[in-house]
């Protein structure tokens, strides 16, 4: 029977709960010192804009977690180990997978590395395990909502309303050449923007996600709760993206980004921030009723045109740098 708690692991502080968790782990372990906007931008996460056709809250978290997260962190030189399993009903070996994941988590904690998991509390977001206690059979956790959430029972690892057993340990970090990192993130961002198909027909990505959101605003199946949540998440992403592109335009010696592109990124960020302020996310149990839908649709159309310009400009900048 053993126990260990990593004191001082911070709570998840970003709307994007995965990158918020990564940031907290990086800070605690001193593995890499990186600003929020740089983390979101250089991994490529800030470019992601996924919406469901009815604008429900699933958009920001619907993608292939294992391969996307591994590649995103690899882009900035972080090597990580990921376990991902969907708990289908009637799965015969789930208990064994749970035990194996528990051992992996405890080993990481013993090595002073907090572990990223899916849904450590009742909030369906990524969060962190910061300790364990065999006697009480609990993991101590950090999430996006509370300072001190209730611990996670060993038995409930991987069991939630969205039952994914996701265990992610950040193992080590190597240096990556800055120009390579910049280029890789932009290539990923442009690819995401032009993506024609994302996971299933009800989800769209990048440019298509704008259209899907505009269409949803005039549909009866529009989800007010989800729209407000998505706008809050993406407002922060677009803010980080604008900061990242601005920084890249200053720091990159190979990729020349025009000032108008940076300016448009700022406009997009301001636009999403305004939408988010007008359609506030009030937490998991309250719903803000979205009004002025026609106006919002028109506004999103303008923002899409600006982002289209930004992406074409970035594509040109990468092409010229070759």
């Amino acid at each position: 029977m053993s126990s260990k708690v990593l004191e001082g692991v911070k709570r998840v502080g970003l709307w994007n709960s995965f990158m918020g968790s990564v940031k907290a782990v990086l800070e605690y372990t001193n593995m890499k010192n990186i600003e929020d906007y740089m983390l979101m931008g250089s991994t490529g996460m800030a470019f992601r804009f996924v919406m469901k056709s009815n604008c429900d809250a699933s958009g920001p978290t619907v993608y292939d977690w294992a391969s996307e997260h591994f590649t995103m962190l690899d882009r900035i030189g972080i090597f990580s180990d990921i376990t991902l399993l969907f708990r289908e009903q009637g799965l015969n070996t789930f208990k064994l997978a749970q035990v194996s994941a528990m051992e992996k988590i405890k080993k990481a904690i013993d090595n002073d590395i907090p572990v990223i998991i899916w849904a450590p509390s009742s909030v369906m977001e990524f969060g962190i395990i910061s300790g364990y206690d065999d006697e009480q059979r609990v993991f101590f956790v950090r999430d996006v909502c509370e300072d001190e959430p209730d611990p996670l029972l060993y038995d409930n690892l991987g069991i939630s309303m969205i039952p994914y057993l996701y265990v992610h340990v950040l193992e080590s970090c190597i240096d990556v050449a800055q120009e390579k990192m910049f280029r890789s993130s932009l290539v990923y961002g442009i690819k995401e923007w032009n993506k024609k198909f994302h996971v299933s027909s009800s989800y769209t990505c990048g440019n298509a996600a704008y259209q899907s959101t505009i269409d949803a605003l005039s549909s009866e199946r529009f989800n007010d709760f989800g729209f407000c949540y998505c706008m809050a998440v993406y407002a922060q992403s677009k803010e980080f993206l604008a900061e990242y592109i601005k920084e890249l335009s200053i720091r990159s010696k190979e990729i020349k980004i025009p000032s108008k592109t940076v300016e448009y990124c700022m406009d997009i960020s301001d636009g999403f921030r305004e939408i988010s302020m007008r359609t506030p996310f009030l937490g998991p149990k309250k719903v803000h009723k979205v009004d002025c839908k026609k106006e919002l649709a028109l506004y999103l159309k303008q923002l899409r045109e600006k982002e289209e310009y930004v992406m074409k400009s970035l594509e040109k900048a990468i092409g010229s740098a070759n």
Binding site: S122, I159, M161
Partner: peptide, 11 residues
């Protein structure tokens, strides 16, 4: 459609 629908074991 409330997300805290209980799928988990209680404390």
């Amino acid at each position: 459609d409330m997300t805290y629908f209980e799928y988990i074991r209680p404390y």
